[in-house]
Design a protein around this nucleic acid. Structure first.
Length: 569
RNA sequence: UGGGGCGUAGCCAAGUUGGUAAGGCACGGGACUUUGACUCCCGCAUCCGUAGGUUCGAGUCCUCCCGCCCCAGCCA
């Protein structure tokens, strides 16, 4: 029965529109019944959770159809690209748990072939060399509502074009002097079909081909051909390329009979990219956050980058689960970040060991507990999974509890500590608050004097007492000091005026709060990227800044907090 | 005023050939609880952007209208 339940959860009976297309293709025996996808990032920035959606889609489809998925770098614009990014992208895809096996490709692998195919287009009078300047090309292109007009160079002979194109390659012209264009239709209502540029002259050092080339193919030209060379059957991309599909098909149709390298007739399918609330997703805006110093780098735990999420403590499983749950469709949508948080909570609830950490300490002296006495109390590591065992926690006369867990004048539904009130200390005893010590000047509560009931020890309670609240705590003399970094959303909604319903996203000034906290001693040997549940607080991950002398934890996500909702009412 | 898309609950999203609105998140209520966590129950669209039409019957077909997104890089 439990099997059925989990099956239903992970295998929704409904398929998305891309799977529907693939199922139809399979029914019609297209592509020899093979499914072959690719993830084609440009190595010009770090991957973010929106890319994770695409990665999960492409690799996931390959997996479920027993097909293949390639990793291909779309490196056709050397002026923006760098090996730093090709490395980080590979790391991120691997970390998510996908493998391209031996199929790591680059569009630049095909530069020579791409050149030859361009020559073929010229021979077929389907491409020509244009001498117009960038400004002139723009003017000749027309506008959204007016057709463009033909370039005066449009009718050069194939021979002349061949010669010119060869000279473009051999470096006889300066950057920008000439371009190779497809000869399609300058009056097309689709601007992408108004003789799109195929090649430009650009003397830029390429991270793989060095200075071998001074002409580089455009995305629109390189992409369909790369797909066909690799035998891609379904070329999945985002919505903004929908207008480019006629060009994609034009190129495939123009070359497919002529070129023996084409292993498939790929079909481009477009889906809506991911947007998330409380953050930004464009490479440009993410770069701005880094460059303007709003965050510490691409892997700042507040960033929606894969590397940021990884450092924050997110698991690949949670991210993949998220990508499955959001679905795939064609409508622009913004997913509530609460769903992402739900996914990591669900994953970590099962996996993360529980420990006690007091984020904002309040000293408690248990007056009737013998001075100098230390008890080693047994604590389970995960009530969800008894197999994770137990550990010992030292208990003594002076402890810290959370400041939020005490109120001098508690409201009705406050189940925690208050003057004269009893609560249980998790894994330990029931204590009662006897006296409140305040700072004489500020009136701030600085210490509590409590008593404990020796008959209420966890596991051997003979008192029959029932208390509503259970608090976490650490023993002052045993606790470890740690830096705890609390992260909040990078962006928050702000209403412009009271009547204005328009909300704008503004940078959250409190997206990071650093605390000095006290952690139970069992964490002394914790290692970078280990994850824990700090009981009653949230899930935390050891940051890579952490070492034996200074422990550093990142809050991945807080626990659901019903009390904070009650408190507000 | 051109072309391409999209509009199903607060947020995502199913809804093959028209047959009487899945699921998840969020939210509300309750049970349980040595994490106010987890888990478990219950509730949450008389209605599918709007208005007409076809039909015994329409979210699904037709027409009008409205709204939102994308396209005029020698970026991807």
């Amino acid at each position: 029965m439990t099997e059925n339940l989990s099956e239903n959860k992970n295998n929704p009976s409904s398929t998305n529109f891309i799977e529907n297309i693939i199922n139809e293709d399979l029914k019609l025996n297209k592509n020899n019944n093979k499914v072959h996808t690719r993830f084609p990032p440009e190595p010009n920035g770090y991957l973010h959770i929106g890319h994770a959606k695409s990665i999960c889609l492409n690799f996931g489809i390959a997996e479920s159809y027993q097909g293949l998925c390639n990793l291909r770098f779309d490196d056709t614009n050397p002026s923006k690209e760098d090996v730093e990014y090709v490395e980080s992208i590979q790391e991120d895809v691997k970390w998510l748990g996908f493998s391209w096996e031996d199929r790591l490709f680059y569009a630049s692998d095909y530069f020579e072939k791409l050149y030859l195919y361009a020559v073929q287009l010229i021979r077929d009078d389907k491409a020509y060399v244009d001498d117009l300047s960038p400004e002139e090309i723009r003017q000749y292109r027309g506008t959204l509502t007016e057709p463009g007009k033909n370039s005066p160079y449009r009718d050069r002979s194939s021979e002349e074009n061949l010669d010119l194109f060869q000279k473009m390659r051999s470096g006889e012209y300066p950057d920008g002097a000439k371009v190779l264009r497809a000869k399609i239709d300058m009056t097309s209502p689709n601007i992408n079909m108004r003789d799109p540029i195929l090649y430009r002259i650009m003397r830029a050092h390429h991270h793989r081909t060095g200075d071998e080339w001074c002409i580089y193919p455009m995305y629109d030209y390189a992409h369909p051909i790369s797909d066909a060379i690799e035998g891609i059957t379904h070329s999945i991309c985002t919505l903004e390329f929908e207008d480019h599909r006629p060009l994609y098909n034009w190129l495939i149709d123009s070359l497919i009979g002529k070129i023996k390298d084409f292993k498939s007739r790929p079909l481009q399918i477009e889906f809506a990219r991911l947007n998330l609330t409380n953050t930004v997703m464009s490479k440009r805006k993410l770069r701005e956050l880094v460059e303007e110093g709003h965050v510490k780098g691409w892997d700042d735990p507040r960033m929606p980058t894969i590397s940021g999420l990884r450092r924050r403590g997110y698991t690949p499983d949670a991210i993949k689960d998220f990508c499955e749950r959001i679905g795939v469709a064609k409508s622009n949508s913004t997913v509530d970040v609460a769903l992402l948080e739900h996914c990591i909570r669900e994953d970590l609830n099962a996996k993360a060991p529980r420990v006690m950490a007091v984020l904002r300490p309040l000293k408690v002296i248990i007056e009737n507990y013998p001075e100098g006495k230390v008890e080693e109390l047994e604590a389970e590591n995960n009530p969800e999974n008894p197999g994770m065992g137990t550990r010992k926690m030292p208990f003594s006369r002076v402890i810290y509890i959370e400041q939020d867990d005490f109120m001098e004048e508690p409201p009705k539904k406050f189940f925690r500590l208050a003057p004269g009130n009893e609560v249980r200390l998790k894994h330990a005893y029931i204590i009662k608050c006897e006296q409140v010590i305040k700072d004489e000047k500020t009136g701030e509560v600085i210490e509590l004097r409590c008593s404990y009931d020796p008959t209420t020890k966890s596991g051997e309670d003979t008192s029959g007492k029932k208390v509503k609240g259970t608090l976490h705590w650490v023993s002052v003399q045993h606790a470890l000091k740690a830096e705890v970094r609390l992260y909040d959303y990078l962006f928050i909604e702000q209403q412009e005026t009271i009547e204005d319903e328009e909300k704008t996203m503004v940078l959250n000034p409190k997206s990071l709060e650093k605390l000095t906290s006290y952690i139970e001693p069992s964490l002394i040997n914790s290692r970078s990227s280990q994850r824990f549940q700090f009981m009653r607080n949230g899930y935390f991950c050891v940051d890579r800044d952490s070492d034996q002398d200074k422990l550093v934890f990142n809050r991945i996500v807080s626990l659901r907090d019903t009390w904070s909702k009650i408190k507000k009412t």
